[in-house]
Design a protein around this nucleic acid. Structure first.
Length: 544
RNA sequence: GCGCCAGUAGCUCAAUUGGAUAGAGCAUCAGCCUACGGAGCUGAGGGUUGGGGGUUCAAAUCCCUCCUGGCGCACCA
């Protein structure tokens, strides 16, 4: 509909002698329903170019405008120069029919050429269980991936990790020390080692399998391997519990083994973007507006994290992705400008990389803020959270808010209120519809009969049909702005419109025509709810 | 000191990305069950959008400045 109106108005502007693309009309849904179904401010933004008062220009536009009057009832100029469009009931009935005929695909954009897109998220190294903070990134990244899949992207969900390096060495040694403790040795356990219980469990498994034969094994051998394996298994299991499954696990080590890291250094050197100083290799970040140059290889010969990050992102673009999305926590804000700068320096298009940063989750338990640190193991794990409130609540809770805001997660409250969590408001609407349909069937109503929607004319029915029609635009706009929380809000509103409709009107009555029409409306609502839930990754219960 | 994010109702957060009278959920108060699910519906109170300046037809939204909180500012990841 937006596209149609835009095209009509553009042709109208052309007839006034305005060059193409000098003004692109945009539409929005007015806050106040009295202002119509869609509104445009085109007359206000064009008034300067045409040197005409906005209201006068708006009037000229609607006089010239040629549109299908069976779809649009009324066009009017209002306020300082808005042009408001009031759609016809026929239009909304057609949209609702669309929902029914497209079913689970309503809202999906089918394009001939799908954009090849990668979403990288979670990417926590296997040093411990996922925290609630990881959970936010996991659920958010996954939902962005789902939104993109719905809007013409071919999506690869990727997890980048590193099982080498200092932290993993410490992890292996932590397990070794716990293992030796189990063998009865009394050894000091360093404070900066991994304190969590899970380390002891891994050590216990090793003792079960190998007895005391590992007494003289080095930390980096079997201890580290076992730790990595068990922890990674747990991470994947946890992710799966909240519906997150990655397509690719990309190991940083492969970038060294294939020589990709070395290539990057050499290429940067040959482009005069890297130089040696005090035994280290530096990247000229200042060439790209950075504050200072950055070390990419330490004087020990070891690369900093920056270098493989650059190599990895270069590989992403080489792999042919048109759009690369990185979901990062706020603690990584400082890292990506260097990567983007290096990509540019290497001749790649940095605008293909979109970095989405989510703010931290603050856990509040018993009125106290719990600081999270994997090493100190005083965190609430994502797994524990799922145990407490369930996957649907976890996902919805994380998705309800914009990623820019700090998320205050009062654990006690989440546990106590899980019965009346906002997500139930949505799911209840779905279950209620399912129940109505069961009831209708028991009364002998043919659910699959054709849908003649013309008996629907009550305000609550029209309001419901209107909001159903907005779903595709909503999905598209949430996908392009990477903002799932707006979809969550939309679904909340939709559920509200349904509850109101239900409260005022009885669906199954003696009037067969009306019953059939209202059942169709119910089915359409159920479909849109279910489609929205599918994007958010929450279940659509038939019963609760 | 510098950079990024935020500051909106008692609390947690929205606000169609610059639009018309700033909205929801909890919480508080007052109502609604003889028929399809009351996990619902209706209504009330609650605001100088952190402060101040600016930009324009229009600012919670953009710019400047100050205040407060979070996260960063490694030859850690």
């Amino acid at each position: 509909m937006r596209r149609y109106l835009r095209e009509r108005i553009e042709s109208c502007l052309r007839s006034f002698g305005l060059p193409d693309a000098s003004i692109v009309p945009t539409f929005e849904k007015p806050r106040d329903p009295a202002h119509g179904d869609l509104t445009t401010n085109v007359a206000m933004s064009a008034s300067k170019i045409v040197r005409t008062a906005p209201a006068v220009l708006a009037r000229r536009i609607i006089e010239t405008l040629q549109i299908d009057r069976t779809l649009v009832d009324r066009v009017e100029v209002a306020g300082p120069g808005f042009i408001n469009f009031h759609f016809s009931e026929k239009f909304y009935r057609e949209q609702t029919s669309q929902v029914l005929s497209l079913g689970p695909n309503f809202g999906r954009i089918e394009t001939v050429k799908r954009t090849k897109t990668q979403v990288e998220f979670v990417s926590a190294n296997p040093t411990g269980p996922l925290t609630v903070g990881h959970g936010r990134g996991a659920v958010y990244g996954d939902t962005v991936a789902r939104l993109l899949e719905w809007t013409g992207h071919e999506v690869t969900k990727e997890y980048y990790f590193n099982n080498a390096g200092r932290q993993m060495r410490i992890l292996g040694d932590s397990v070794r020390l716990r293992y030796l403790e189990l063998l009865g040795e009394r050894l000091p356990f360093p404070e900066d080692y991994y304190q969590g219980e899970y380390i002891k469990e891994i050590a216990a498994h090793l003792k079960e399998q190998h007895g005391d034969k590992l007494r003289n094994e080095p930390a980096e051998g079997i201890f580290k391997q076992q730790a990595e394996k068990e922890i990674f298994d747990d991470i994947k299991k946890t992710l799966k519990r909240v519906g997150v499954v990655h397509d690719v696990f990309y190991n940083e080590n492969s970038l060294y083994e294939s020589g990709k890291v070395r290539e990057v250094i050499e290429e940067l050197r040959s482009r005069n973007l890297a130089y040696d100083l005090e035994g280290a290799v530096w990247f000229k970040a200042t060439e790209f507006g950075g504050e200072k140059d950055k070390v990419i290889v330490k004087n020990t010969g070891e690369p900093t994290y920056r270098l493989p990050d650059i190599a990895y992102h270069r590989e992403k673009l080489r792999r042919g992705f048109d759009l690369v999305i990185d979901v990062l926590g706020a603690d990584h804000v400082a890292t990506y400008p260097d990567v983007l700068a290096a990509l540019k320096g290497l001749g790649y298009e940095p605008s293909k990389v979109k970095v989405l940063i989510h703010q931290f989750v603050t856990i509040v338990q018993d009125g106290e803020v719990v600081k999270m640190s994997t090493r100190k193991a005083n965190f609430i794990t994502l797994d524990e959270l799922i145990d407490e409130v369930g996957s649907d609540v976890v996902r919805y809770f994380f998705l309800m808010r914009g990623i820019d805001s700090h998320l205050n997660f009062d654990l006690k409250l989440a546990k106590e209120q899980s019965e009346q969590n906002p997500v139930y408001y949505l799911q209840y609407a779905h279950a209620r519809i399912a129940s109505i349909i069961r009831h209708a069937e028991s009364q002998g109503v043919d659910i699959k009969a054709g849908h003649d929607l013309s008996p629907l004319a009550e305000p609550e029915e029209l309001a419901l049909m209107k909001i159903l029609a907005e779903f595709p635009d909503m999905v598209e706009s949430c996908a392009s702005s990477f903002e799932p929380h707006r979809l969550a809000e939309y679904l909340h509103e939709l559920a509200g419109f349904f509850h109101k409709f239900y409260h005022v009107h009885r669906v199954v009555t003696e009037d067969k025509r009306l019953t059939a029409a209202r059942i169709a409306l119910c089915l359409a609502t159920k479909t849109v709810l279910a489609n929205g839930f599918a994007i958010l990754g929450i279940s659509a219960p038939e019963k609760m």
